[in-house]
Each structure stands twice: as structure tokens, then as C-alpha cells.
Design a protein around this nucleic acid. Structure first.
Lengths: 375, 375
DNA sequence: TCCTTTTGTCGGCCTTTCCGACAAGAAGA
DNA sequence: TCTTCTTGTCGGAAAGGCCGACAAAAGGA
């Protein structure tokens, strides 16, 4: 059988370039390393599924299960280009969790920014998305990402090849013209917009890899837009007085209080099934390896958290009135900071999940509730 | 590494459908079966390369080497869609050649025509190739190959998907309209013409496989056109008086006498290198397995000939004045017959290759020389 | 030979897309 | 605040592509 056919057999495909995957997921999404130790939270997994998961009431489910990451597959939906990861987890003894060195899994944000920025994102304007028009290329993007034009010819023009997350190549005419002059993508752009079904508000990411090949990724606009809603599960940096936990933290999630309590802003609704959660939890509880699917663009938090981060967070005496600051990423990959005060600390669902570190996430949730109310 | 990248790593690709390969090569090109016995002719191989091959003079090279076909890979150039085959041959003892049953390798031309014709070829007109226009579909092609249109709607229209030799899918709008009404391919056609760099005179082949999937192949026009030049290496059917050797014969090749003697009409010039010929001959002479590349659209003959055919041909007392008839295939896959008289029988290069059955091909060459002179 | 069927080419018109003009917005002085 | 630089939107212009008309070519009687 022909290989290409194999790849197209279902609506998923292995990711062509893991850096493009990262750019689409958002630079603030940090996946754990293979072989590192994480805590798996069934409760978080259920919330990620976005449906009410009915666990069997006769079996006691632990609130967290320490696991070793066996493998991670970076993938993308063939239809929408939405990125997701397939993670294989193997339960380990709790002692292994505590034996993990403190430093393991720490991520130095910005440490790989030593080189020139290699990616550029732009939210599509009405003119960009209206087919008929081309794409207005921000000067920075053309200067730092695209191959340099020959400005001696008039007008300067070249063919730009960009590869999408599935490895499919797209060609665009890149021209520098107009008064005042600006960079534009013309021929090929409308085909891309139509085939990817892009609309104004969607973002695209251009990425230049080490061989100067260009990749092009998509981040779709959220259907239910909440003003300034962070696009990805943000990592937050607690800053308590002078105490700052360096480069660690939890993911946060966002309850959309404009709707009912059970309604979550999800992009992946329906992609993670309740049965998968029950199956994963069953295997995890029995100490058997299991597989979970994670959609980073979902607004629910990661439900597998690096051991070192959990330990860092547990050392903070969380209480009301505590001030904090938290970074989040907007559509254009710009990292902004939100500062506020913790109003209350409580477990998310105390009756079913007593004493779960998962309640920490409730803190963040509360913060966001306040945040939205202030707008 | 991503699979698709692997496939695109060089400018060759494994053929998507061997029947499409056959259609592009021409139905008169018959490849030997795997495990069958053939004669390999170093001289023919050298001519196929289209360059002067300098064999080492100190080693005596046999004029033919009996071989068993170990494997055949059907392939296509990624850039031009030109089909070729990679054939692995293992030298065998001459006794194995003679032990081959007479019937082996016999090909019954027309035996698989029992079903409706499943392929249709058309040479592109100026209007077909001019971008701006669509493609005028012959009625027969639409009726026998394409999915049947719903003639109740007005105008009858559908989307036609066709897969090229690399497995890439192309979409065309197939509409039945105009006065008088006719079948046309509109949207999608000009993209195909531009990307494949088709010009008026090139042929395309539509093929319907057992699952009613449509394939689309390309046969490019020869650069140096000789009027009524057969497009593929023809098989010929000698007919001597009442004696007709059934369904056997040699391939023929065509010397273009309008040019110098050493100039051959080649489509694959430069694709088969002299070094490959020397390497293959060296291995073959030493009795070791070797690999050859064969371009069926080349106008040089096959340089590996089925054992049974050689034996059949050797039984004919070739001499001047003998009348013969020979089928050949035109661009549109129509098989025509050419009849003539043998003017002389001589070895192609008697000093280097005495007593080679390869001289039989010289007969055909002579016939064609006469043929061209008559035009 | 004549008639019918099929299909190649053409000009008209509609749609798409390419273009500079202009101005709104952002950034810097 | 003013100036400069950047980029979003618009209407006109050019190109591409779909259409039936017509006639040439092919095939059958």
C-alpha cells in the first residue's frame, strides 16, 4: 500500500515539525520530557474531556497518580490542523515521585531566545481573510522570518514555500510593492485561506527552522470570545511578597461565568471521550500503562503536572489576600502579565476529591472569575 | 522523520498503481514476470543509455547473458512523471535458459480486453493546453471511464477526483453543457496543466480501476517528432508467407536517419548513465546479481528479452526479401500495423559483437530506415 | 455523397485577484 | 504633540476562466 494513503487513512496525522507544534500550541505550553515523572489527575482529565464523566462509585479513585512519561506523540487533526498530543503514562510508586531531583523538569522560559526570534504570528484582518485580497505581511515577519528579497529588482518578488503541520507544502508569491511600500503575499494566499477555512480573527504562525525552511501554522479563533481571554492554559509564576517561585507553577483553567457553571470554553469539545477517561483511570488505578490525549489549545488545564512543579507549589502557603502575578499568552504569542489577589482557597469538589492538590487550580479559577467580572 | 519527506527526498517515487504505469508506458510494453528467464544484452543496455559506453577492451564481454528476474520496481520521475522500471537480474547458467518451457512468458495480447476498456487516452489540443480554457472530454471517455453524471439536473455536473502516478489526488469539475452539449473539465484543469507543464501534443491517460477510482497519467510529446513515429518500443509479429509466429517477437528501435548515425531519438537521454551500464555488465559477467534501469518510453529497444521470445525468433530463417508485418502503438494507444519487406540482414556491430541475437534488432532498424525514407 | 454526431476554437462576459491610493493607527521624537 | 513609519481598506484595472455559438472534423448510412 502506498505510504501517502496510509497517512491519510484517518483524520489525524503525525506532526511534521515538533517546533511548529509548539508554536501552534503556544510557547507557554510545556510538555514534560520523556522518562520524567508527572502527577496524573483523573479529575483534571475528566474536565479536559468537557463532559460529565460518571466514575464507578464502588471503586475509590485516587485524586492523583504518579506516573513516568513513556512516550509522547505530537499530532494534529487533519481537518482543522488543531494540535494535540498522545501521551503514554506508566504508573510508578509514590516514592519515585519524591525521589525526583528538584531541578528535573524545570523549564527556563526564554532560554532558547538567544537567537533571533524564529517565529512570527499575526491575527488575520478582514482584508487578509476576505478572499480576493492578499495577506499584508508585517515588516518584522518579512525581515526576520522570510528569505531576504532582492531589492535591486523592481518590484522585489519571490516565491515563498511554507510547510504546514502535516508536511504539505504551500507556495505564496511574496512581493514588496505599493506606496508606501509593504510586504504582501498574493498568489497562493486565497487558496490557502479557502482550503484551511480561515476567517478574520484566526492567527497564522510563520516559523523558520535551522535550514531556513519556512513552516506555517494555524491557531483558530475561539468561537465564544471572552475579551482578552488567554489563548492557552497559562503557566503562572506566583510572587508572594519577595518570594517568587522561579519558573514553576500550575496550569490554570477558566470558567466562563457568563454561562452556566457546567459550561466550559472548549475548543476540543467532543475530541476526548468520557470512555477514554474512565479507561485511563481504570488502568492507572491498577498500575498499568495507559494513554491520554491532550489538547493544549483547550482552556482546561494540563491534567499531568511535572513532579517538580507540584512540589514547588505545595511549598507555598496558599491563603486569601495573597498577591500573585501570572503570565499568559495572547493570540499573537505576546506574553502579558496579570496581577491580582487571591480571594479564597477551596477545593473544587471537596466531597469527591478531598485533599487533592488539584484544588490549587481552583485558586486560579477564582482569580479568573474575578478578572472577568472586572472587565 | 516524516514519511512524506522520505518520499520526496529524491526526484523519484514508487509508482502508485502498476496499471497506470502500464498505461503510461504503453500497452505494448510487456515487462517480464518476476522469476522468469530473460536474456540481458550489454549492447542493448549501452544503446539504452544513449551515450557511447567505453567497455574495457581487455575483458571479453558476452553478447548476451541469461538471467532470472529477481524483482521489478515500477517507478516514476517526480518532476516529469516519466515512468521507468528498476529491474534486479541474477545471472543463471545457459542450460536454465534452454530448459525454460516454450509457453513461459508468452503474452496474449488482447486477452484482458474481455472487460470494457478501462483506460482512455487523448492528445491535448491547443484549446486543451491553452490555460484559460478547459479540457474537452471525448464522449467515449466520459461514458466508459468517468462516473456517470446525473442528467436530470441542469446542467449535469460533478467533481472528478483523479490520482496521478505519485498518488497525488487532483480534482476537476466535470460538466456536460454547451450547444451541442459535450463533456468538459473546467475548474482544476488549468492548475493541472500548469503544474505538470503540459503542452499541446502531450497525451493524458484516464484509467478506471476495479474500485471505480480514476487515475490520470501523462505521456509527453517527443521533442524531435518524426512523422508517425511509433511511441513505444513496438513488438512485432513476423508474418512470413503463411508462417506467422504467434504473439512473439523482439522489440525494435528506431534510428533517426535525418541526423547523424550516432544520434538516437531518446526521451531518457542522461537518465541512464554509462557507468551504470559498465557496472551492470561487470557484475553480470562475473555471475553476480545486478540492477538495471529501463525507460519504456525510450525509443531504444528492451535490452532484456524473454527467453521464449528469443527462441521463437531464432526459429525464423531471417533473410532479405522476406515480408513482415509489425504492430506499433500511436500516442492515442491505437495499435496500427506496418507491413514491409526486409532489405538486408546484418549484425549491428559485427566486429565487437559477432553472432549476437541482437543483430535481429538490426533487421528492424533497417526496416525503419526504409520506412522513414518512404515518407 | 450527404447527414449526423462529435469536438476544436473563438469572442463575450463574469469572477477573481492584483494593484496603488489613501488614510488610520502605531511608534518614536 | 508632532512626525514618521507601518499597515488596513478601498475602488479601479488586469487577468483568468466559464460560457454558448459556430463550424470543422469525424463517422455512419
Amino acid at each position: 500500500m502506498f505510504l501517502q494513503n496510509l497517512l491519510m487513512a484517518d483524520n489525524k496525522s503525525n506532526c511534521f515539525d515538533s517546533r511548529l507544534w509548539q508554536a501552534c500550541a503556544g510557547t507557554m505550553v510545556k510538555m514534560p520530557a520523556v522518562d520524567s515523572i508527572v502527577l496524573y489527575f483523573p479529575q483534571g482529565h475528566a474536565e479536559h474531556a468537557g463532559v460529565n464523566v460518571e466514575f464507578r462509585s464502588d471503586v475509590k479513585i485516587p485524586s492523583y497518580i504518579p506516573c513516568r512519561v513513556s512516550s509522547i506523540k505530537y499530532m494534529a487533526e487533519r481537518e482543522t490542523d488543531e494540535v494535540f498530543a498522545k501521551i503514554r503514562l506508566t504508573p510508578v510508586r509514590l516514592s519515585e515521585f519524591f525521589e525526583t531531583p528538584e531541578e528535573e523538569g524545570m523549564v527556563k522560559i526564554g532560554s532558547d531566545n538567544s537567537r533571533k526570534p524564529l517565529s512570527f504570528a499575526k491575527t488575520l484582518t478582514q482584508s487578509d481573510a476576505n478572499n480576493g485580497g492578499g495577506f499584508s505581511v508585517p515588516k518584522n515577519c518579512a525581515d526576520t522570518i522570510f528569505p531576504t528579497l532582492d531589492y535591486n529588482v523592481n518590484p522585489p518578488v519571490q516565491t515563498l514555500s511554507a510547510t504546514d503541520i502535516h508536511g504539505k507544502s504551500w507556495q505564496f508569491r511574496h512581493i514588496y510593492r505599493g506606496t508606501p511600500e509593504r510586504h504582501l503575499l498574493t498568489t497562493g494566499w486565497s487558496t490557502f485561506v479557502n482550503q484551511k477555512k480561515l476567517v478574520a480573527g484566526d492567527s497564522i504562525v510563520f516559523l523558520r527552522n535551522e535550514n531556513d525552511k519556512i513552516s506555517i501554522g494555524i491557531r483558530r479563533i475561539k468561537k465564544k470570545s471572552v475579551a482578552m481571554e488567554p489563548e492557552t492554559s497559562p503557566w503562572w509564576f506566583p510572587s508572594v511578597g519577595n518570594l517568587t517561585i522561579p519558573r514553576g507553577g500550575f496550569s490554570a483553567f477558566l470558567r466562563d461565568d457568563h454561562n452556566t457553571n457546567s459550561s466550559w470554553s472548549l475548543i476540543n469539545r467532543g475530541n476526548v471521550k468520557a470512555e477514554s477517561v474512565i479507561e485511563a483511570t481504570k488502568l492507572a488505578t491498577n498500575g498499568q500503562p495507559f494513554e491520554v490525549i491532550f489538547y493544549p489549545q483547550s482552556t482546561t488545564p494540563e491534567f499531568f503536572v511535572k513532579a517538580s512543579r507540584v512540589k514547588a507549589a505545595l511549598q507555598i502557603p496558599w491563603c486569601s489576600g495573597m498577591r500573585f502575578k501570572m503570565p499568559f499568552e495572547t493570540e499573537d504569542l505576546v506574553i502579558s502579565w496579570f496581577m491580582g489577589t487571591i480571594s479564597s482557597v477551596q477545593a473544587n469538589d471537596p466531597s469527591q476529591w478531598p485533599d487533592s492538590p488539584w484544588r490549587m487550580l481552583q485558586v486560579i479559577q477564582t482569580i479568573f472569575s474575578i478578572y472577568i467580572m472586572l472587565l
